[in-house]
């Protein structure tokens, strides 16, 4: 068996793949957090709970309505996005004029409530969700075995991430968003309905979390705590990447996933803490993050 740096190649590549998969989820979630923070000035602690909700919606669709994976990949984000729009309209929008802290407290409370409700109903053991038949099995790449579904997760999330990048950086709607991040008042005085823009931005960002939840369901099982486990790391990633750029969120998300994978291979003891170590170093050297700009 070939070895790389003293580690069997399949093990190394296996960990790298795992890292890329985690990184895909990090990227999808941190992207949404960056959009929400930029537009709404809210640190959305409910993001993990909405990711979990996406997975549960897919599970409900399958188990109660017999609707499978592919439709769920569209429907669950729509449901989560609509739920997000209701949250934004009825609660979050009342807090924009106040300190960040209020938005954080509200969304933290919402996360506890949503997760608590699912936990009461379904416990913490996790519900299995089958891999869709078209994506079962895998490919032997020679140097490693690639399960098809995992390859799909990486590809799908990269496509969605770059779709989002395109939307924000290359379209008229995206120009409204970027301008509103800089100066909402003026954008509104040009005749753009900024409150509506904020609602749509929140709905879109949490729909991304719902999408990630569906992608995750066949890998991690559907578990009320699946969001909680992930979201702390995602916040660290947001801090590392900074909130300035969409591309920054994507690159940092994928990059941190890979770094975690490598750490698991070479120094497993540090794999859970390496993200926070990087965060501390980045904070010390570049307080606005690797890709961030100081905010006015």
């Amino acid at each position: 068996m070939t070895e790389l740096l003293g580690v069997p190649a399949p093990v190394l590549f296996g960990q790298l793949l795992l890292g890329l998969i985690n990184g895909s989820f990090y990227a999808l979630l941190s992207l949404g957090l960056a959009v929400i923070f930029g537009m709404l000035n809210v640190i959305n602690f409910a993001h993990g709970a909405l990711y979990m909700t996406g997975a549960f919606v897919a599970w409900f669709l399958l188990n109660y309505l017999g609707i499978g994976y592919w439709p769920a990949l569209i429907l669950a984000p729509l449901v989560v996005g609509a739920f997000g729009i209701v949250l934004e309209k009825t609660m979050l929008s009342r807090l924009y004029k106040l300190d960040h802290l209020y938005g954080l407290l509200l969304t933290f409370g919402l996360a506890l409530i949503i997760e608590g409700l699912f936990r009461n109903a379904y416990g913490v053991s996790g519900q299995p969700y089958p891999i869709p038949s078209a994506l079962q099995g895998g490919q032997n790449l020679g140097f490693m075995f690639l399960p098809t579904y995992r390859g799909w997760v990486v590809v799908a999330s990269i496509i969605v991430c770059f779709g989002t990048w395109f939307l924000v950086e290359r379209t008229r709607f995206g120009a409204y968003l970027r301008a509103a991040v800089e100066n909402q008042e003026l954008v509104r005085a040009f005749g753009i309905n900024v409150p509506l823009l904020m609602t749509l931005a929140y709905g879109f960002a949490v729909a991304l979390a719902g999408f990630a939840g569906v992608l995750a369901a066949p890998i991690y099982q559907v578990n009320p705590l699946m969001g909680q486990d992930l979201i702390i790391v995602v916040f660290a990633i947001v801090v590392i990447g900074g909130l300035g750029s969409i591309l920054g969120s994507i690159v940092t998300g994928l990059g941190i996933g890979v770094v975690e994978g490598l750490t698991k291979t070479f120094y497993p003891e540090a794999s859970a803490t390496v993200v926070f170590l990087i965060m501390a170093i980045v904070l010390a050297l570049r307080p606005h993050g690797l890709f961030g700009r100081p905010r006015a």
Partner: peptide, 8 residues
């Protein structure tokens, strides 16, 4: 009116 309505 709100600023966006005024602009319109």
């Amino acid at each position: 009116l709100s600023p966006d309505r005024i602009a319109r």
